[in-house]
Amino acid sequence: MKRLCTALLLFFAWVAPAFAQQGHPLTGTWQGDWGPNANTRHFLTLIMEWDGKRITGIANPGPDSTEIDQLTLNAADWSVAIDMDLKDSEGKTVRFRGTGKLNELGSQNRVIEGTWNADGQSGTFTLTRQSGA
């Protein structure tokens, strides 16, 4: 069974990029976390869509889902700005304003790393684009 699982993992690790998205660099599902320090992190999922004029999307799909109010990509330096409401681990809504940089542009698992501030707090966030999504 362990062998089968390993084989399946290897298979999907190889196959998944074949179906990966090659269009607008932000389109797709991104997963990561945000928090004020290394010990306190909140899970974060963003689903982003490009309609030809603007990037839209939702955060944390499910009961705590929120819409992204503003999301911009500056292609001159691949910087990203995100403005949205988020619910933290206690269910409290906070206003999340993040700025980051899109890295590993040629990879299916591109990464956005940056900093945020919300309600007087600040910290870092990281998002990785999911293959096949």
């Binding site: 074949a18 990509l73 292609a75 001159a76 691949w78 040629g106």
Partner: peptide, 26 residues
């Protein structure tokens, strides 16, 4: 569009090495 030109330039400057046709037979 701006983003498309920037991405095209990136792929070009990268010698097209991320091309999924060559990497994954897409």
């Amino acid at each position: 569009q701006d983003w498309a030109l920037a991405l095209y330039r990136f792929r070009q400057s990268n010698h097209l090495r991320d091309d999924p046709m060559f990497l994954y037979c897409v």
